[in-house]
Design a protein around this nucleic acid. Structure first.
Lengths: 132, 132
DNA sequence: CTTGACGTTGACGTCAACGTAAAGCACGAT
DNA sequence: ATCGTGCTTTACGTTGACGTCAACGTCAAG
């Protein structure tokens, strides 16, 4: 049952995007599936990478930024300068993500607040109709 | 020192966006500052609202979606149907935000991972140069 | 009363991230 | 051999979110 590499239609279906989107990401250097002749073959590695791209997109990062981040992850630089540069980039990314986390948590807290008020108003209405 | 309503340039400056952006948000119905003649006056209420819009933007929501969410917050419907509809919308928003929070936390975890490997490699390099 | 400094309204330009349409290869089934 | 089906490339269109520019109002200072 372990079928090997998958087609573009299959991975697009899996992630709920169109094949056009997947090909666009390839144009932008975000994924680079193997080619058997003219056809694209998506190995698990490519599929995972595509998942990371889509997560980055959900986080609101631009595709170019996502590409830089993923390339950063992939590097095995081995040189001290590269490593310290990488660490600096990590600091930036973390600051960005920390901001996003604060935003999400604030928004969720307010959502809770609205929901509480909403339920309170509903039960008040129910009580009033019960009284009427 | 409590200066009253502020000008568009001031709020734009405060939030680090251009006046063009603020006016565009007004076109889209996201904010609606008072008008003294032709000039816009931003009261604290408008300023807070603009802050919420920008947070929504950081979260990757489309402006149209942000407008719906903020309008949802503002409503005092009083009617049961409106309230249950509002609750349903809240469920959707929460699912969306929960997904985003998972994304952020996963990304932060991977960032930590990369950083650890990076520091390990750096100290390995330092040790090697110390030996050499 | 002119001169800036700011504000305002269109109108048009731009860029990212796709969508869509046209036309062609590959390949198994009829 | 050709037919349909799926994948491919090429090219152009679209949408959201602004940027930019021109032309004009306004108001305090000189």
């Amino acid at each position: 049952m372990a079928r090997g590499p998958r087609t573009i239609a299959e991975v697009a279906e899996q992630f709920g995007v169109t094949h056009r989107t997947v090909r666009y990401y390839e144009d932008q250097g975000l994924v680079s599936p193997e080619r058997r002749g003219t056809q694209r073959l998506y190995h698990p590695r490519d599929t995972v990478r595509l998942g990371l791209v889509l997560r980055g997109r959900r986080l609101g990062f631009a595709l170019e930024e996502i590409r830089r981040i993923l390339d950063m992850y992939d590097q095995q630089p081995g040189e001290a300068g590269q490593l310290t540069y990488l660490l600096a980039q990590i600091v930036d990314r973390r600051a960005d993500l920390d901001q996003r986390r604060r935003d999400v948590e604030d928004a969720l807290a307010e959502l809770d607040d609205v929901e509480r008020r909403c339920r309170r108003d509903l039960s008040a209405l129910a009580a009033a109709s019960g009284d009427g």
